[in-house]
Computed example of a mutant assay.
Amino acid sequence: MSSAPRIILASGSAIRRDILTGAGVPFEVMKPEVDEGVIKDEGGREGVDLETLAMRLAEAKCLDIAAKTNAIVIGSDQIMEFKGRAYDKPASMDEARARLLETQGAAHTLINAIAVARDGRIIWRNLDRPKLVMRKLSAGEIDAYLKGAGPEILHSVGAYQIEKLGARLFERIEGDHYAVLGLSLFPLLDLLRREGALLF
């Protein structure tokens, strides 16, 4: 009986590691060497939509690692869209505060793209667009949240971590909870079963 293929997560994201670990998926982590700024600049010049851009980033990450191994390689990327604009991770707590002031009381979308490669080629893609509706928040509430959550939120495009204190910022979420966190788990598990990487 042949052994199950190795699984590699092409990401330095702690929450993506936690999602796979929590689901009992055996995997290794390899951080890709991809210049996201170059891909974003190219996409901007070409006028591609944000879904296409997110998928290009996910593909680039998994292909960078897949070129070095015959394992199943998972790449993922997430872009926040608010009023037609794309947002990167905030660079400072002041920028995080400004973002929360801008998005409070309104809805935004998180575009979550996953690309999986095996034997050096893309074998599967998945795109999710969960919608998040934020409560109306005062400046004082936002300041209290930032003080409680701390600079760890700078790792999130929306300046929040929905799995932690950030849950208190929202009225509701429409869509896949795992896609909000950064990795659409259920379709990925289905793919890993089909590829013989998981028994169940």
Rank of each mutant, 00 (worst) to 15 (best):
G140F: 02
A113Q: 07
A106Q: 15
A115R: 02
R168S: 13
Q78I: 05
L169V: 01
S76T: 08
A96R: 04
Q161D: 11
Y145D: 02
L100R: 12
I74L: 10
V157E: 04
L169T: 06
G158N: 14
G75A: 08
L154C: 06
L165D: 11
S76I: 04
R85E: 15
K136G: 09
A115V: 04
R118I: 01
I72L: 15
E81N: 08
M134H: 13
R125G: 07
E141G: 10
D143R: 09
G84I: 01
P130Q: 12
L154M: 03
L100P: 13
A144G: 11
V133H: 14
D119K: 12
L169M: 09
R121M: 11
Q161E: 06
H108V: 00
D143N: 08
G75F: 00
V116K: 02
L101E: 09
L146Y: 03
I142S: 05
G140I: 08
G150L: 05
N126D: 11
D119Y: 12
G84N: 08
E102L: 15
Q161G: 10
A139G: 12
Q104I: 00
A117R: 00
P151R: 03
G120Q: 05
S76A: 14
D143M: 10
I74F: 10
F82H: 10
L110C: 06
A117Q: 04
A144R: 15
S76E: 05
S76F: 00
Y160P: 08
I79K: 02
G84H: 05
S156N: 13
A107K: 11
S76R: 09
K164A: 13
K83W: 12
K136T: 13
K131D: 11
Y87W: 15
P90M: 04
E152D: 15
R168E: 00
A159P: 04
I123A: 00
F82E: 07
R97G: 02
A91P: 03
I162L: 14
R121I: 11
R97M: 10
A159I: 04
V157A: 03
L165Q: 14
R85P: 00
F82L: 07
D88F: 06
D88H: 07
G158T: 08
L110Y: 12
D119F: 12
R99T: 09
L137C: 06
K147V: 10
I162F: 15
V116D: 08
E163G: 07
H108D: 01
S92V: 07
G166M: 09
L101S: 12
G140L: 13
N126L: 01
N126S: 12
E102A: 09
S92N: 11
F170K: 03
D128L: 15
V116S: 02
L169R: 01
N112Y: 02
T109K: 13
L132G: 00
D119V: 03
R85Y: 06
N126A: 11
E141H: 14
K83Y: 12
S138I: 08
A144L: 13
R99H: 13
E102V: 09
L137D: 02
G75V: 00
M93G: 04
G120L: 01
Q104V: 05
D88E: 11
R135G: 05
I162C: 13
E141M: 14
G75W: 00
R97V: 07
V157D: 04
A113G: 06
R97A: 11
Y87E: 07
R99D: 09
R121P: 06
K83Q: 15
V157L: 10
L165W: 01
R85Q: 14
G148T: 09
